[in-house]
Design a protein around this nucleic acid. Structure first.
Lengths: 132, 132
DNA sequence: ATACCAAATTGTAATGATTACAAATAAATT
DNA sequence: AATTTATTTGTAATCATTACAATTTGGTAT
């Protein structure tokens, strides 16, 4: 439950944080800051965009969400699914799909003597909808 | 040779393009637009930053170089190695290392019915230099 | 419950990478 | 050498994100 997640991350529970976190987790759109902002406006007309940015920063830092960046898209996207998975980004419609891939490299703690903390991977191409 | 690469890509051969392409290929730093610009200033004091951006766009479009984007870095980086490989980005010093990884997913032409054109992947963590 | 303090929220202004655009210049072809 | 077309240049605009200071709020101790 959302409130508990914030508590566990020792983040103060506020209306803005609850709703933003809930939105990112429940919708599977990997929303941008602006999408979050426009959603929040419908709940709380005085929300500030800075709050959105502050909040996603806190949520990212405490690992409640993840950030992702894709070539060809100007905005950072936020992902409520925090366990390792990857993405497919459509070059035509821009839609982002979650992808489960198996790869022997995910378990590696080290590569070429560098200590690995995170793995990011994505495919680009034409999605099944746009192929039609 | 640089001039031939441009010809094959049917790009007009200009001093700026030759030097920019040569710089991106020979240096292994995955330079940003600004790094390219500052290098070019030493060769041609009237170079415009717009030319750098125009040039990397043409080179990317014709597949003579690749662009890459990393979390935690504001600038797009340019890579003269165009065959499939990946990167390690140090969270401390920001340095980018080329990584050769084997993965059964590189050969896939399709995933979940989406047509794959490109694969991007990178690891982040602490590089062997910063671990010391 | 009340008061307090640290942290969160808000609004505005700044930053900084990238793009748009129009004028000047240069490459390649006839 | 002249012409055509693409490239280069400089300036101004765009747009996501961050900085910062003032206000408000959540949570804790009284």
């Amino acid at each position: 439950m959302i409130t508990n997640k914030l508590k566990k991350a020792s983040l103060k529970s506020t209306f803005q944080r609850e709703k933003i976190l809930e939105y990112i987790i429940s919708r599977k759109e990997h929303p941008t800051a602006d999408m979050i902002y426009r959603y929040m406006l419908t709940l709380s007309p005085c929300i500030s965009k800075t709050t959105v940015y502050n909040t996603v920063k806190s949520l990212t830092k405490t690992n409640l969400i993840k950030s992702v960046k894709f070539l060809g898209q100007d905005e950072i996207r936020y992902d409520g699914t925090v366990d390792t998975h990857h993405h497919f980004v459509c070059e035509k419609c821009g839609k982002i799909y979650d992808i489960e891939v198996l790869c022997q490299n995910f378990n590696k703690k080290e590569i070429n003597e560098h200590k690995i903390n995170n793995v990011y991977a994505y495919f680009t191409g034409i999605c099944k909808e746009c192929k039609k």
